[in-house]
Design a protein around this nucleic acid. Sequence first.
DNA 1: TTGAAAGCGCTAACAG
DNA 2: CTGTTAGCGCTTTCAA
Lengths: 343, 343
Amino acid sequence: MAKLTLDEIGKLAGVSRATVSRVVNGYPHIRPEVRERVERVIQQTGFKPNAVARSLASNRSNIIGLFIPTVVQHIFSDPYFSYLVQGISRACNESNLILSLYLFHSSEEERKALQNIMFSGLIDGLIITADRKDLPFLPALIESQIPFVFVGRPQDESLSFVDTDNVAGAYMAVEYLIKLGRERIATIATQRNTAGDDRYAGYRAALLDSGRKIDRHLIAYGDFSLESGYNAMQGLLPVEPDAVFVASDTMAFGALRAIRAAGLTVPDDIAVVGYDDLPPALHAEPPLTTIQQPIDQTGIEAVKMLIDLINNGLQPPRRRLLSNRLIVRESSGVLQVSDEHEA
Amino acid sequence: MAKLTLDEIGKLAGVSRATVSRVVNGYPHIRPEVRERVERVIQQTGFKPNAVARSLASNRSNIIGLFIPTVVQHIFSDPYFSYLVQGISRACNESNLILSLYLFHSSEEERKALQNIMFSGLIDGLIITADRKDLPFLPALIESQIPFVFVGRPQDESLSFVDTDNVAGAYMAVEYLIKLGRERIATIATQRNTAGDDRYAGYRAALLDSGRKIDRHLIAYGDFSLESGYNAMQGLLPVEPDAVFVASDTMAFGALRAIRAAGLTVPDDIAVVGYDDLPPALHAEPPLTTIQQPIDQTGIEAVKMLIDLINNGLQPPRRRLLSNRLIVRESSGVLQVSDEHEA
DNA sequence: TTGAAAGCGCTAACAG
DNA sequence: CTGTTAGCGCTTTCAA
């Protein structure tokens, strides 16, 4: 058979290509018998409209990009990324969007590709995974007028984003430690990214709200690596905390080791709460109390938001925060049943 | 400024749009001064040709798809997938290809999307991650004439694929156990996928080549899960193996537990070798001897092969097997230095 | 070596 | 309700 086009189908069904186009696109005002005739031909021939021609004529490709800047690559070996992509892809499938992946290994690649994305007009919009504070390409991206949403809170608050509520998550964690009766609650925080900032803010707020003071000596910093967690915990040990809220599970694993290495026990001497609920948290020694984020849901919401931006314009910026859950395991100790009624 | 098109650039440079097109595409026979003039205008304006229009005219999108069938989803929580995507994306960036991700959560989604991929003409080619034996969409895909390569050996040998050499990898592992002087070498194999078949074939060949017999009682089966590894190992314990080659690290972790639970020690009572070299292998108790595959390289080769298919036709089918490495850790015991000279 | 012109297959006014 | 007609921005003969 000849190559199938709207014209071909039209000929076969005895109508013009415009009518076929209307049928394909679900345009309402068509005589039912005509619609049916056309649909039958489409059925029989297995015709699919050419996506490229369609994009050119409509100026809409139905392709969105997932942009993963160089610096976030470590995330890629995290399950975080897997869950996010799962959510995004699910939402794309549902909305008949094609997902293209922009993954870079150098800032040169990154710059070049972004240039292409912005000016070659292939892509309807972009999801950007980045919560770090310095995004050199951002001004150009904004100027290009291409719709995009961040996953993770960007530094610049005027941008659209979806994130989990890191402040509330950290607050929840620390509040729980307080309820457990812990007195000297330390934290291992991080710098250079907004998630870390927000978690620290939650730690701070929970302490302040319970009438406590912030003690600088109880604050240490890591860089999300296990080693940095180990080192930070070692630094905290001399000031004798009886609990520590760690801004990531991976660092918490390091902290657990440091505590064990010092001959102390978890949670008796020091209660530990992590953040992320990565699978290893369950198998940690002891199993790690932590904050679980709805990551796949974040991906789904990001796609929805992007579609909204594409259809309804970039202004005003949209924001969306999803709630997290506290997962209580042994590393924190568990609240008594009677206490639960207080909540 | 007006929207940039070939025409615009041509006007600015005082040439026709055809000439600009030639410059952009590196066509050789152009007067140097003209080329330079055009290039300068392109520079200054930051012009990028419209990717969609280009695709329509040239019938080439420079987009390739990475297709991940429903059943392989478990792979997604594996680092395997991450490494593969890293390799693929690196190769795409290098060749100026756009990578789009087709990830499905139901076979209905899968079928629908495949239909689109095949007939909407958006995509130049496809990389398919699947080593399972039953791929219901395969006949239609072949008929569609769209270029594709498998990552992992497909059942149908007439298809193009790149894979790591599972037979040789398993052979290497078992050969090592033999050299270590192990007498009763069991295996935990898998069914329903070619990688499992090949690893079993390697196990078999190594044994046979050393003049041994295959003992059915030393063969157990798992499904790649940790639990199945545990159960399979429990099943093997009564026949008293002194070594076990496990077809995946994850199952090996299960096997380690089962051995420990039976009060035996690794490697003194039973030597264990896994397959994959996942990160946890390093932290296993004891650290796991295993086979490491060049997964990112596999991705790179897949892209190269796909480009070859796109440019030079689908026939004959291409095949490529990459070599693996034996990573010796404590779970197998280590060969004496003097023995290494024998190799 | 360059320009003119004909499409690629579709959408979207505009008529009727 | 349906057909006609312009394009969308690019590549690619064909002439010059």
